[in-house]
Each structure stands twice: as structure tokens, then as C-alpha cells.
Design a protein around this nucleic acid. Structure first.
Lengths: 340, 340
DNA sequence: CGGCGGACAGAAAACCTTTACTTTCCGACC
DNA sequence: GGTCGGAAAGTAAAGGTTTTCTGTCCGCCG
């Protein structure tokens, strides 16, 4: 492949001059010379070597996004937001699905570091795992030392996110909406307790119940995986406990969707027998039968802002944390409590 | 950040020796020396610079995947497959959502080229756009010249895919299944005619009809976008044409899902009034109401194989084309024709 | 007419690794 | 004892780019 040396030779100039032309440097080059270089570059189909440039600048226009699973609608929406913003700025996006495995997350962090990615965005929630987090912290420190930006979109071991939402208020608002519909015995499918974001959402549930002066029956809270299967298991567990409830509030949409499926299999009518609410408003939430009531998170916007936040950090600006708004959207999976 | 020079200095050896230890080269290094180097590397938190290494080898362990939209379940499933295989081999994956815009696709190709990515996988279908394809061909040639592998998972301007499915046979099989259920007036939502894969699927429809000795009523074929909105529009168009049909076969699941929604709005019962079939079997196909009958494509497997094919090409092996099997899966959106 | 500054161009260093080529050393063999 | 060979270590070049530092040339001012 053609190098700048070859372009320079063909144009009859030094590599310095050629570099200044193709790199659009702020340096005077006469029009005639410029055109000759451009012509040579076109002729040789010259494409600058990002590795050489990166070696020199010790960073490359790549931003890594570490997610739990790119297949999860929550994450691919966020990634798309990052991509849109990154693309406009000439950056490429590396996606890394860690499957919530701290070891895999660390291995990704190391690869991204070895690549000198300009920024790394952690889209998923932090995991409570002291050992692994120690190594992660080392990598994060290393990236920062190298001048790379590190951005979090969810609560993590090091504190609150750089760009995020108020999970506590969001869930509390949904609980309030459920209470408004006459529900008092509200179950909560909480997700994995090791996930920081799940913990926040559980806190939101407690807060919402407290705000409504309702006491929390601990048997109504069940820890689950953060996917559809978890939703089904959660419903079964609730039923097995034989505890009464008229609504199920879920820590995310996937759980709610799983609950919907299981409830249908069991012949429980939603929303007539029981109301179900999700959280996140992933794209398929409006597609289920019945359409899912949920709390909308500006997922794509979070991705965009995450990238912008990274750029600000790269420019030495302060990248102050931002909290984006959430919004309760009531569709068909919730209804006024039966018998009211 | 620590360089190998610093590691070498700390360990009291030459950079060559240090490199041989950390790079796990096939070269004898005494145990004592090895341990000293390793200790120094650990102490300095040394992470090799992939850019410097890449500059030397003129390739970097990155594979780019160009998709139409990472948010589309079809593509994120494929990407996940690539990622799983790539990850196991120590490669990172760059995803590029082109939104079916040839210009954007080209800009991605150029960036990937400038990065000297080891391989580029085109997951989406080629687009019939002579002008843009010319530039794309230049980029592809440039990559190959650089020793990078280029893999296609869908039909493209240059021919059939390296790893793909038989779209014609797949759709024909679904048409046969519909015929088996007694349907004769089968409509077809064809997707965008500029998309090569959509053309193949249309051919499949014609083939299926011909196999059943049914004549094709051209008014039953409607070109649409390749998303849910397109499915709704397609249904409206069919109705506007006032043409009779008892089943709708769709060129992909998103279309079918959109058709399902629109049909429900219109009060047409599925499958009692009309049967609906999709194609791809994306993860949400089993979630709709009613559950969608469709043709299963081994999406994740295609991603995995795509990566493996790339690796084979990189190793100079022949990366012969593979066709993966498809399978008709009948769920609840199709039924025996009314009145039979 | 001497000198100065601006516009333009080039030479060379630096970024970090890997590896082909040397060099050194030591034991073994004739 | 001299030589050969292999193990272990080192030297230095190369890969492509950007950028600092030097020049050169020309017009203009005093």
C-alpha cells in the first residue's frame, strides 16, 4: 500500500510537505504544490496509516464501548447513540460484550488499552466484585495516564455515572403511577443484586413505596437475572411464595416481557388480573401483547452524550456529570386495580 | 505509559530480550532473565503498544463489521457471533452502522483501511448503486492488497457471499409451507428492490409459486422498506389495490411484525382471516402476538463462520464459500386457509 | 544597499516494537 | 588444545507519520 513517502516522491516534494497537505495541517503550502500532492495521493489511492499516526500521538481515533450484551436492545440502542456521535467526529466504535463477566471485561479493557483507544465508555452497570474491580481500576488509571478518556453511563464501583439517569426517582415514579391506579400490594422483580444499577432500582422501589406510605412486604421482592428468563422465574417464585399482589413492577423491560409471557402461559390476564410494569422502554416494549407500560430512558441520547462527554474530557474541559430525564409511559399492561 | 524500553532497563536487559519474553516469542531466554523481565513488566504495569506492533506487521488484531443498523436484531445477532469468535482469538470488533447509505459505507471502509484492520466483514446486503460500488471496490482491493481479509455474508455487487444462506430456497420453502396449508393467493412484501438480498428473496417467492404451479399475480407483490414501518405500508398498499389474498409472505421478520401490527389495528384476525409469515427468525419473532411463523437463519453462526472464514483467508487457506441451512418454523401467525 | 521578516520547503528526530544479524560464552568433541 | 556448535544476549534497522528546527528565496523597509 502506498505510503506518504511514495506520494511525496511522485509529487516531487518532501514527506513533510506531503504530510502537511494530506493532513490538512495549519501550515502554508503553495497552491501548485498542494495540487501536485493531492493528484499524487489520488493516483496512488493513498490512505494514511492510522497506526503510524497513532503511534506518534499515542492515541487513535477509536472509542471502545463495553456493554453486557450487544444483543440486548438496551445496549444496542446506547451503542448506536455513541456510534452516531463518534461517526460524525471521525471516530470508530469498538463494541465489547462482556456477558457481565468481570474477567472478560478486564480482558477487553486491556485490549483497548493496548490499542491506545482515545476513549472507553462503560455502558453497563458496575458489578460488585472487589477482586476484579481492582484490576479494572488499574486499567482505568492506565488509560487516564495515557490521556484517554473514561466515561461511565451507569453507577460503578468508582461512583455515579458521568452521564446517566436517576434510577431511584424513575422507579419511584412508576411505583407512584401504580399506586395512583389503586395498587398497594406491588411486587418487585429486582434483577441481580450484584449489579449496582439493580440495587439503585430496588432503592427506588422502596422509596416509591415509602412515599406512598405503604409498607414493603419483603416477600414481594425477588432477585432474578436481568433477562426474560429471569422474569418468568420471578413470576413463578412469587406464586410459589403464595403472597398476594395486584401489580408487578420490574427492574427492567426484559424482566417484564418475561413475566408477561409466563403470566400468559399461566392463564393470568394482564392487566385485568395483574398489572405489569417495566423499565427502560426498549424498542420492543411497545410490541408485546399487551403493550408494556414502562419508564422511558433516553438510551440513544445517553450514548451520544457519553461520547460528547469523552470528547470534552479529551479537550481538557471538565465533562461535568449529567442526569438525563426519565418519563413514565403507561400503555396496556397496567390498569386500575381489580375491584376498585 | 511504560514502554518495553523501560521494562528492559528495569530488568537490566536489552529491549530485544524483553520483547522476546513479553511477546512469548519462540526464542530461548534463560529462566532467570525471563522472570526478571516479567517482574519488571508487572511492576511498571506494562501493556504492549498494539499500534507499534501493528505498524511493523502492517495489520492490527481488529475486525470491522459493516452492518446496516446495529439496532436491528438481525445484525446485532450476527455481530455477536463475530464477536464471540473474534474474542476467542484475541481480536477486537468494530461495528459500523451504515443505515444503508453507500456513502457512509464507503467512509467506514476507508477508516477501517486506514486502521489496517485485519479483516472486514460485510454483514448486510449489497446495494445496487454503481457509482458508490466503484469506490467500495477500490477500498476492497486496497484492503486485499494490504493483506487484509474481506468477507461477505450476503450477496453483493461482486457475487455470492462467502458465508450465507440460500435465500431463494428458504423463501420457496416457506411458500411451499403456506401452499401446504391451502393458501393459493399469497401476497409478498418484498423489501427494497435496490437490496440484492431482497431481490433473491423475491426470486424465492416466484420459485415457490412456480413449484406449486401457481401463477403469480403481480399485484400481490409490493416493494417496501425493510423495517416495521414498511410492513404496515405494505399491508395498506395491498388493501388499497383491492386484491384478494389469504396469506402474506414477508421478505423479513421486521416486515412481518409491522404487518401484524397494522392488521391488528385494522381488525383483521391473524391467522384466522389472513396468515402472515416472516423470514430470519430474529429473537423477537417468537414474542409477537400471535407468535410469528418464519424461516430460521443461523444468524450468530453466520457471524462466527464469517470470522473463521476471514482467519482462513489470512492464513492463506482458501476460505471456500459455505451455505448454511435454513429451517421453516411454523408458529401461530399461519393457519390452514379459511373455509377449507 | 543591507537587513529583516514572511512564505514556503526540506531534513531529521521521535513514537514503540519486532527481528535479522551479530556477538559472546561455554561445553564437547577430535 | 583448538575448533565447532548451540544457547543466550545484544545491536540496529525498519515500519509511516508528524513536527521541530533549518534553510532558502523574495519583497520590502530604512
Amino acid at each position: 500500500m502506498a505510503s506518504i513517502t511514495q506520494v511525496a516522491k511522485l509529487a516531487g516534494v518532501s514527506t513533510a510537505t506531503a504530510s502537511r497537505v494530506v493532513g490538512e495541517a495549519d501550515y502554508p503550502v503553495s497552491l501548485a504544490t498542494r495540487e501536485r500532492v493531492l493528484a499524487a495521493a489520488r493516483e496512488l489511492d493513498y490512505v494514511p496509516n492510522a497506526l503510524a499516526r497513532g503511534l506518534l500521538k499515542s492515541t487513535v481515533p477509536i472509542v471502545g464501548v463495553i456493554v453486557h450484551d450487544i444483543t440486548d436492545p438496551y445496549f444496542n440502542e446506547v451503542v448506536r447513540g455513541v456510534e452516531d456521535a463518534a461517526n460524525a467526529a471521525g471516530y470508530l466504535v469498538i463494541t465489547c460484550s462482556s456477558d457481565r463477566d468481570p474477567a472478560r471485561q478486564n480482558s477487553y479493557a486491556r485490549l483497548l488499552r493496548s490499542l491506545r483507544a482515545a476513549a472507553v465508555i462503560f455502558a453497563g452497570s458496575g458489578i460488585a466484585d472487589g477482586e476484579a474491580n481492582l484490576e479494572l481500576e488499574r486499567h482505568v488509571a492506565g488509560m487516564r495516564e495515557n490521556g484517554s478518556a473514561v466515561v461511565h453511563l451507569s453507577p460503578h464501583a468508582g461512583g455515579p455515572p458521568d452521564v446517566g439517569v436517576d434510577n431511584v426517582a424513575g422507579i419511584a415514579a412508576m411505583v407512584a403511577a401504580l399506586v395512583e391506579l389503586g395498587h398497594e400490594r406491588i411486587a418487585f422483580l429486582a434483577g441481580p443484586s450484584a449489579l449496582l444499577v439493580a440495587r439503585e432500582r430496588l432503592t427506588g422501589y422502596r422509596r416509591g413505596m415509602a412515599d406512598a406510605r405503604l409498607t414493603v412486604d419483603e416477600r414481594l421482592i425477588v432477585s432474578t437475572d436481568f433477562d426474560r428468563a429471569g422474569g418468568a422465574v420471578g413470576v413463578d417464585e412469587l406464586l410459589a411464595r403464595g403472597v398476594e399482589f395486584s401489580a408487578i413492577c420490574c427492574a427492567n423491560d426484559l424482566l417484564a416481557l418475561g413475566a408477561l409471557t409466563r403470566l400468559a402461559e399461566l392463564g393470568r390476564a394482564v392487566p385485568d388480573d395483574v398489572s405489569v410494569a417495566g423499565f427502560d422502554d426498549i424498542s420492543i416494549a411497545a410490541l408485546s401483547a399487551p403493550h408494556l407500560s414502562t419508564v422511558r430512558l433516553p438510551l440513544r441520547e445517553m450514548g451520544r452524550r457519553g461520547f460528547e462527554n469523552a470528547m470534552r474530557k479529551l479537550n481538557g474541559e471538565d465533562g461535568a456529570p449529567q442526569t438525563l430525564p426519565t418519563q413514565v409511559v403507561l400503555r396496556d399492561s397496567t390498569a386500575r386495580r381489580n375491584g376498585q
